[in-house]
Computed example of a mutant assay.
Amino acid sequence: MRIAVAGGSGKLGRTVVRELRAGGDDVVSLDVVGERGPGFVRVDLTDFGQTLDAILGVDDRHTGFDAIVHLATIPAPGILSDVATFHNNIRATYNVFQAARRAGIRNIVYASSETVLGLPFDVPPPYIPVDEDYAARPESTYSLVKHLEEQMAIELVRWDPSLKIVALRFSNVMDPSDYAEFPSFDDDARARKWNLWGYIDARDGAQAVKRALDWDATGFDRFIIAAADTVMTRPNAELVAEVFPGVPLKGELGVNDTLLSIDKARRLLGYAPAHSWRD
């Protein structure tokens, strides 16, 4: 496919671009930063005119796309002011979705976030492992935008039943170079309780993107995307008993299995995480 990756210079975006190209796709990164070359176009995605023009075609670069992967975002709370985070992220996402629709692109995959599940879980989750079945619980401006983006996607596919928008609720993205720190997490069960001790290897994040692009479907759906295990060596039963006593259990916890359920992504997308910090 000819694929635009909005935010292709970010931590996850770099890996997604690399892995899609390795699989034979023709990929162009659209971002405000990046190295000049045939696979990169500098675009301010908060500007609709630039976004639409870049998606429709750029001289000497491309003449349009078959699919859009939208990863461009202020990636977490607290990096900018709340209002700057809100304005940047909601505007960029609307612009990418709307430009794709205007360009006749029916295949959109984008980065939602684990934060919509209720992170940092100062209010305990309704059950563990968490999944996509309960209503969003945004607890920050960043998370609120992610929830609103999902609601926007729901309405856009209602307007256009031929459209597919897949929201991937990525866990905390990690590169292999980040794994040296993981053994220290065992010292304090609460240090990483904010996302139920979850993470996602960027390479598995790229796999999820590709599987979502290839998924033969229309409409909107959302998937939690995490590694198959936690960041801890301590067993799940011990962690949950210490940090979330009294929270109902929904199924087996496993010893170190992810508590961000990826069962839906496995079942519908064929997602199969292949990388672990334990390796």
Rank of each mutant, 00 (worst) to 15 (best):
R2P: 08
R2A: 14
V5R: 03
S9N: 05
G10T: 02
T15W: 02
V17E: 04
V17R: 05
R18N: 13
R18I: 13
E19S: 13
A22N: 09
V27I: 14
D31M: 12
V32W: 09
V32E: 01
E35C: 07
R36I: 00
P38K: 04
V41L: 13
V41E: 15
R42N: 10
R42I: 10
D44T: 07
L45M: 01
D47P: 10
F48V: 08
Q50S: 11
A54K: 15
L56P: 00
D59V: 07
H62W: 02
T63F: 07
G64W: 12
G64F: 14
D66N: 11
D66W: 01
A67R: 00
I68M: 07
A72D: 01
I74W: 00
P75L: 03
P75M: 06
P77K: 04
G78L: 07
L80H: 03
L80W: 15
D82I: 14
A84G: 09
T85R: 11
N88W: 03
N88Y: 09
Y94T: 10
Y94D: 15
Y94C: 14
N95I: 02
F97D: 11
A99V: 15
A100K: 05
A100M: 13
R102G: 05
G104K: 08
R106N: 09
N107P: 03
N107V: 04
I108C: 06
V109P: 00
S112Q: 01
S113G: 05
T115L: 03
T115K: 03
V116D: 04
F121H: 08
V123E: 04
P125M: 03
Y127K: 09
Y127F: 15
Y127D: 01
Y127I: 05
Y127E: 13
Y127R: 14
Y134Q: 08
A135K: 07
A136H: 15
A136L: 05
P138E: 04
L148G: 07
E150D: 15
M152E: 03
M152H: 02
I154M: 03
V157A: 12
W159F: 11
W159E: 13
P161H: 02
P161V: 00
A167G: 06
L168A: 13
D178W: 05
P183C: 08
P183N: 14
S184A: 07
F185N: 10
F185P: 10
D186G: 05
D188E: 10
A191T: 12
K193V: 00
W194V: 09
N195Q: 14
N195I: 09
L196Y: 11
Y199S: 05
A202R: 02
D204Y: 03
G205W: 06
G205A: 11
Q207T: 10
Q207V: 15
A208P: 04
R211K: 15
A212N: 00
W215M: 02
A217H: 08
F220M: 03
R222M: 11
F223E: 03
I224N: 15
A228T: 10
P235I: 01
A237R: 11
V240F: 02
F244Q: 01
F244N: 03
L249C: 06
G254D: 12
N256I: 15
T258G: 08
T258A: 04
T258V: 14
L259T: 15
S261E: 14
K264R: 09
A265S: 06
R266I: 04
R267H: 09
G270N: 08
G270R: 03
G270A: 12
Y271F: 13
Y271K: 06
Y271A: 14
A272D: 12
P273S: 04
A274C: 08
H275A: 02
S276C: 13
S276Y: 12
S276I: 13
W277R: 11
